[in-house]
Design a protein around this nucleic acid. Structure first.
Lengths: 238, 238
DNA sequence: CAGTGGTCTAGACCACGGG
DNA sequence: CCGTGGTCTAGACCACTGC
């Protein structure tokens, strides 16, 4: 934990505790620097985090205003998506189960070779999992990962969290992801496993996720029941 | 344009011109600092931008690797969403027309009062526009904005770009937006104006956009034809 | 005008990855 | 071990806001 992260956490707590009230201004950066015994650049970095997370908004020549946060009750940590669904649900005290529908190894198709930067000879896992939250089918996930990057994947890991395995057991660092979100019609798979009607829409999230070393490690399609789950984001800038 | 923004632009250009090649490492930050005649912190800030935009990925103790960018041909500028659809389409040399379906002023409903932080007595515009790209119906936008924040809105502005008017004519600064993306069924409006079938899915983006001064200035629902438009994002971290 | 945040510097120390 | 990027400092200048 760096200094600016700790300071951001303290200020966030003060906002939540109404020590700093919504609609008012934060103390100026110099005063905060004195209070925390750090340089102003460090305060500036802390405030940048809070800006990205949507808690405050700064204006040169004016000050830093505390915003009425649209997602107070939800998770807005900067690592949001990369802890996987398991973590998110645990935070909301919801029970998640994963049913493995298929788990195979094969050589990648052309499209996958391109997306994951693979040769035709590099095998991939092909995983289909049904994520069940509080006993209701929620998301049908089709995941493809290179075997050489993610070795020794087992049923036990798939039933828990792949992301936990990648980050904590393999020690790999995740850089980010590219996503495309579409609405589509339910297909036979969705009808069977998500228990959709044939005329139901489905929210489809296509994702390619990358490691810090530059290699894509996951290509996935998440098919979400339209009445159970949306996709929420907070997009704030400096 | 700040120094770190210019430097980021130069480095990005070198990547595009293959002066720095995909998969190799960038020169180290000290060398770049010498070359550009700036301090290393400035180089660091420039590289942060490139990281957020998905061009490079840094690892402490190793270096900064140039990534195979998933969106080379698309717009990844950091102000992506805030220039509005008009600007995006102009960049792709596509023709956009806006048909005004309704444009009224009214007192806000309860839900809108909450979302836009208004009293029941503060009037709002209620705008419905059909965005037509290359002569095909594309998006049906329901937009609500407070009259006091966005004065003197006219038909002419609505046919062009509201975002341009807000930023350039009114001089307001946009902080960001909260979005929720859902798949839904087509309703009568969609069928009539987007020329959907009754069984077609629709991609719905609900958005609340904020100014830097903390006031929400827009509540909107964009209903996108499922076969014409998805929602794409690049989500990279440090 | 005084006060604010945004940027920038020239150093420094440290954590980490690789040989 | 060395070289890397990440952080941090104590200042400085500037652009902008509001009065």
């Amino acid at each position: 934990m760096t200094k600016y992260e700790s300071i951001a956490a303290v200020i966030k707590q003060r906002i939540q505790d109404n020590v700093y009230q919504t609609g008012t201004l934060l103390p100026n950066q110099s005063d905060l620097a004195s209070e925390f015994g750090v340089s102003r650049m460090t305060i500036n970095k802390a405030i940048n985090i809070l800006t990205m997370e949507g808690f405050v908004s700064s204006q040169r020549g004016f000050g830093t205003k505390i915003l009425n946060h649209p997602l107070w009750n939800k998770d807005v940590s900067p690592v949001n998506e990369y802890r996987g669904l398991s973590f998110q649900m645990a935070e909301q005290h919801r029970q998640i189960k994963s049913q493995i529908i298929s788990f195979e190894v094969a050589f990648p198709e052309k499209k996958i070779q391109e997306r994951l930067m693979l040769t035709p000879q590099q095998p991939v896992y092909q995983i289909v999992r049904l994520r069940i939250v509080d006993d209701d089918p929620f998301i049908l996930e089709h995941t493809i990962m290179p075997v050489d990057l993610i070795p020794n994947l087992t049923d036990d890991i798939l039933k828990e969290s792949i992301y936990h395995y990648i980050q904590f057991d393999l020690g790999l660092q995740i850089a980010g992801a590219y996503r495309n979100i579409q609405a589509t019609r339910a297909d036979e798979f969705d009808i069977k496993y998500l228990q959709c009607q044939p005329t139901d829409p489905v929210l489809e999230v296509e994702q390619v996720a990358y490691l810090k070393n530059g290699r894509p490690f996951e290509y996935s399609h998440s098919r979400n029941r339209f009445d159970k789950r949306g996709y929420t984001e907070l997009d704030m800038r400096n």
